[in-house]
């Protein structure tokens, strides 16, 4: 153990300087968001990557055609417990903001049959899209389920939330996007 005050001062100064240097080295570049660019993965402030997917009964939905209203994009899977927990919140939001906000569920890698059965069993009325080859999930860089992406009426990503979104946060974000219209 160090004994003299001078030795301690030297070592604390060295530790602080090395720490500050490491923080500066680890600093990440913050890019100014530009809404003029399309991105491969959703980045806040950028246009959401466009896609077209089908519901289990064959209805085609294209993200860019939903412009003019806020869009809540929820990535889920039937085996995902937290997804099941939050789905009633999305259902309630769908009923409450019907016609003013689009609530869309994008499944991860499961067949149309599974998505269809799940939607009926859970009494989900908002569109559940089938992404059986995971192309949209990969493009959106979905690493963890559930993930919810809030997209404003101009098609710009406002927020990405990984994990359960509760009723309070969901309504807060939707109303915030509606106010900003």
């Amino acid at each position: 153990m160090l004994r003299s005050r001078f030795e301690w001062i030297i070592w604390i100064a060295v530790a602080a300087l090395m720490g500050v240097a490491w923080i500066v080295v680890s600093k990440e570049e913050v890019k100014e968001p530009s809404i003029l660019t399309l991105t491969e993965a959703p980045i806040v402030g950028h246009l959401a990557p466009d896609f077209t997917l089908q519901t289990p009964i064959g209805e085609r939905i294209t993200l860019s055609e939903l412009r003019g209203q806020p869009v809540v994009l929820n990535f889920w899977a039937s085996w995902c417990g937290p997804c099941r927990v939050e789905m009633p919140f999305f259902e309630r939001a769908q009923m409450k903001y019907n016609g003013k906000t689009a609530v869309i569920g994008v499944n991860q890698g499961e067949s149309a049959n599974i998505v269809q059965e799940f939607g009926v069993r859970q009494a989900i009325s908002y569109p559940l899209l089938v992404d059986d080859d995971n192309s949209v999930n990969l493009n959106y860089n979905i690493n963890s389920l559930p993930t919810t992406i809030f997209i404003d009426p101009d098609g710009v990503v406002q927020e990405v939330i990984v994990g359960i979104v509760n009723q309070a946060v969901l309504e807060d974000r939707i109303e915030g996007m509606m106010r900003a219209e």
Binding site: L2, I9, I12, A16, G19, K27, E28, V30
Partner: peptide, 30 residues
């Protein structure tokens, strides 16, 4: 978690705690 300038918030908190611990250790030892 990052600050607006891109610095890691956890690193800043950790450095403050590290220096605090070392200063208190120095006081105790000396």
């Amino acid at each position: 978690l990052l600050t607006a300038d891109g610095y890691h918030i956890v690193q800043i908190v950790a450095l403050a705690l590290l220096v605090g611990c070392l200063v208190l250790l120095a006081r105790q030892t000396t």
